[in-house]
Amino acid sequence: MTKAAEQQGSVYVPEPATIVDKKRMTEEETWYDLRLDSGEQLDHDPGQFVEVSVFGVGEAPISISSPPSKEDGFELCIRHVGNVTNAIKKLGMGDKVGIRGPFGTGFDPDAVVGKDILFVAGGLGLVPLRSLIWTVLERREDYERVIIFYGTRSPATILYEDELKQWENDPTVEYHGTVDMADDTWKGNVGVVTTLFSRVDLDPDNTVAFICGPDIMFRFVVQETEKVGIPDDMTFLSMERRMKCGIGKCGHCQEGSVYICREGPCFSYEQIKAL
């Protein structure tokens, strides 16, 4: 529970946070750096989300994109698609939003120590994975190979371009990017993200896959991971649903016997199959 909620005795009351920095990333997405006004840290796991309030407009669930190690505050990358996220777009540095969370179950980096780590991100799916990617890279020696596949619709919709370059130039990271549709500036791979699987040899016995992107992408990517032979309990995904209350009450995000906002949004593929 957030501090404000604790003080006020309601799990629905957000606590104030301040936008300390923002940067337009693409036509549709903006990056934000936020601090809780209480001075506390979020203390989140990679893959968890917060409910962001713009008072008078509403709340929206947003994945936390910074790693837990970030010292002050946390980062979000917000796609402006609805009422709340469009209202956030109009806010500037120093402005306030409300925060509840962190909520949900994230990815556990401790559980995959010693493994080859494969990240597969599609579009905005890079946002929750970024938190985990940095967490893994901070303790690089705990893992064997680190492979990142990132696909977007076009070069214009690529997120975190500077960091992708960093990963590309990092000798300990195997980074592969692709776009569905190229333009004149694009020199790299063209095609959906699954085409990248042919570029690397994966060890089915020691690889763990973390996948995040639109539902339709999941379905094709897990076909590839299954083809490689990565077990279902070594394949992890993050799911999108209508997470309204964040605490497993309002019912909107129910899928089978779980609430995506509580038991998810991160699941193993084995768990998802059982839903």
Partner: peptide, 25 residues
């Protein structure tokens, strides 16, 4: 009502401090 809020000027506009008051007494 889950909570009430007050803020001078539009809460969505820049520079507005919002106070919340829970309604779960």
């Amino acid at each position: 009502v889950l909570f009430k809020f007050t803020g001078k000027g539009a809460p969505t506009h820049s520079g507005v401090e919002v106070e919340t008051e829970a309604q779960a007494e």
